[in-house]
Amino acid sequence: MTPLLHLQDLSVDLPLGGLFSRGKALNILAGITLDLPRGQTLGLVGESGSGKTTLARAILGLQPSSGTMLFDGKPLASRSDYRAIRRRSALMFQDAAASLSPRMNVEQAITEPFTIHREPMGRRRDRAAELLAEVGLPAAFAARFPHELSGGQARRVGVARALALKPELVIADEPTAGLDVSVQADILNLMADLKERHGLSYLVITHNLALIRHVADRIAVLYLGRLVETGPTAEIFAVPAHPYTQSLIAAEPKPDPRKRRADLAIQGEIPGVLRRPRACEFHTRCPLAQEICRQDEPVLRTIAPGRQARCHLIEEKTLNRETTDELDHQSPQLS
């Protein structure tokens, strides 16, 4: 079956300078190759500045990119292709309240997709009430303006608007950012419920590993605009291959102090695309970095069925099974 979304060697370059300094560009993303099968959830993980949001925008054509993108098997190239993908997908924003036009009330906001794509919606009022009911908000919310909504309510309105045209793909950027834990759970349950009912595919972008472990079928880890590891969620959490993934998982708060590991902690900040390290991007912060990491750029290669990683040291690591076993939260002998 063709995946709903297929990215092949996607890259994004931001042109620099103005009228007199053409030609220079800042490389934000490169070599992104990903598949999102229909009905599945792909989690995109990485620190701030790793290019997660840029990737989401590139998929919808909001950000010029190069490479190949197939949506439902058809290439995205012209303006009308992008209009089509925007019709059949929806973007949920990190700051849901800010993604609503401040002068439109909820009813106008959530029925706007119908107007934009000239889709029949029946009576605006009824359709709005229907959409609000779907996300668990009373119909009275239709008359509210964005500044009159709480964080969780704004998020639900965002979901309602995303669902308006029955999309196939929903791109959710930090769907739980800035919400109380109980509201986070509500939103995640709502998203799972809607996925079930409407057969949605999600691309969930987050730096929250607990969230991604809970919702994603597959994970893609980004570091400085490069894919460093992809694979099924359970396997990556059980045996992370790339040192960066290991560090991320090791950095997760753990209730048991004996499972905390200092040796895998990464130091410092993400270097930033302006001062991109040569060769392997991660060598400046990698606890295992060796000479080769400073010399040659690694490539993304298959390390196990369905799993890929971009690291020179993977073979050595796989020999070292004990190291990785200790990272396995579920391993019964340690608990």
Binding site: A90, L91, A98
Partner: peptide, 17 residues
């Protein structure tokens, strides 16, 4: 550059709209 304008573009709204 604000989110709600990006949201409109993501929904497929035309420049004039």
């Amino acid at each position: 550059q604000s989110d709600f304008i990006v949201a409109e573009r993501a929904m497929g709204a035309s420049g004039a709209r």
